[in-house]
Amino acid sequence: MSDKETKVKVTNLTKKFGDLLVLDDISFDVGKGEFLCIVGPTGCGKTTFLNSITHLYEPTSGHILIDGKEVNLKEHNISYIFQENSTMPWLTVEENVRFGLDIKSIPREEATNRVSEYLKIVGLEKYKNYYPNQLSASMLQRVVIARAFVTEPDLLLMDEPYGQLDIELRFKLEDELLELQRRTGTTVIFITHNIEEAVYLGERILILTNKPTKIKSSVFVDMQHPRNIADEEFVEIRNKVTDLIKWW
């Protein structure tokens, strides 16, 4: 990431809930267009970490700058993809994808063009008039991904977005995500507890410690896409990350 312009700068981020210290003085940078994965033991505060970045939780201390400015959801264009399905059940697929554009008052014609472009990319144009309750889990997650990308976000935060999908669908959606990210150059922070997923997707992997969470290590994955999970180098990095994550 050293050759990239800094997109996100986190300095001394600390979060306490009462006396409980969850995030302990975390500092790191994310480069523009970087795909950063964050892994850590279960319950280590990964989600708190993301929520603090977006100021969904107010950090106890520290700063998060995007393009050199303090995070502001009105000003910065951040998209967040959760593990749980967050489509609006009363909107059709098309309306769901359009949701963020309407909120940001993007002109009608431009919004329509962008929505149809992204529906095509995620392969849902045939289903644009369907309601979420008529779709499968992977299709729903595609809707959410299209909704996130269509706003052309400065930063895309993903919190175990594929945690509930079976392995085949996960692989497919991971490839789609990489392709979308390559096309749009969006900066992505991707949280997962799945080490293989992190090595498959990330340019860099941050490994967090158990609570109170600190950054334990940072591992670069200098491999071309598409990566082969059976490749010797892949296995080596995966083992390295696995060793780093062990807290026992």
């Binding site: 969904l56 264009n77 951040i78 998209s79 609006m88 963020g100």
Partner: peptide, 29 residues
Amino acid sequence: VDRELIGAARMLGASERQVFFKVVLPSSV
């Protein structure tokens, strides 16, 4: 109202007013 949906709308930059009219009200229908 599903908190996830409110969170998703907020993340997309929705104001309190937009959260109310675009999420809270329709999901109560």
